[in-house]
Design a binder for these strands. Structure first.
Lengths: 109, 109
DNA sequence: TTCCGCTATTTAGTGATACTATCTACCAGT
DNA sequence: ACTGGTAGATAGTATCACTAAATAGCGGAA
């Protein structure tokens, strides 16, 4: 990723992953693959795994080990009530920031 | 600021300040005050000054010392050609990210 | 005069987060 | 046995916003 994108993902990637989990349970490799499809082509694998560990420790997700047909068992993450609450906070923070930045963009000729 | 906002500002605050400078020259204290008015009430002073030092070192701004009626001289920053180019990159990165996040938000019930 | 408040900048140290790079582990097909 | 795709873990690095404190100039109140 470019340096700009890397910095901008700090704080937002967490919300992005929580939003993906809001749609339904998923595991790390799957989440990374989806993000890559959506244009985050150079997103590092390790970044997503580290983030998942973090949100697990903070109690935003429930985890279940599920055997895989190919490869080692998957750790499937499900957003729980606390995670949904935190996601709501994220949308609030995002909205505030996005509105102000869009305002600044409008002012550019 | 809340922890979420602090993390989300990483990478975006730089663009915000450059966008402010795009509208015309300004100095640190003034920029902080404007941002506070616009809702970033708990934005730390030191943060803006550190950011200004950074963008000066990266050559995005020209600096001029201007005497103040009250207090020590102001360091007035002007966005130069290189800074305007970088700001354009910022808008590109921001648009990409904002579009994908808004897409995720639409999918939430 | 002395002190306080507002203006204005600087800087040392901390914490959070994405990255690089590498390692482990499992299975299928050649 | 070897390769490639799937799946996860982790040690170390860089960047950036924050905390906290210091410096400095000026005006008005005590």
């Amino acid at each position: 990723m470019g340096k700009q994108m890397t910095e901008m993902l700090k704080g937002t990637l967490e919300g992005i992953v929580l939003a993906i989990l809001f749609a339904g349970p998923a595991y790390g490799y799957e989440i990374t693959a989806r993000l890559r499809e959506q244009g985050f082509v150079h997103l590092a694998e390790g970044t997503v795994y580290a983030l998942l560990v973090r949100i697990e420790q903070r109690g935003f997700v429930d985890v279940e080990k599920v055997p895989s047909e190919k490869g080692p068992p998957r750790k499937v993450y499900s957003l729980n009530a606390q995670g949904r609450e935190y996601l709501e906070d994220f949308w609030g923070t995002w909205s505030f920031l996005a509105e102000r930045i869009e305002q600044l963009r409008k002012e550019r000729k």
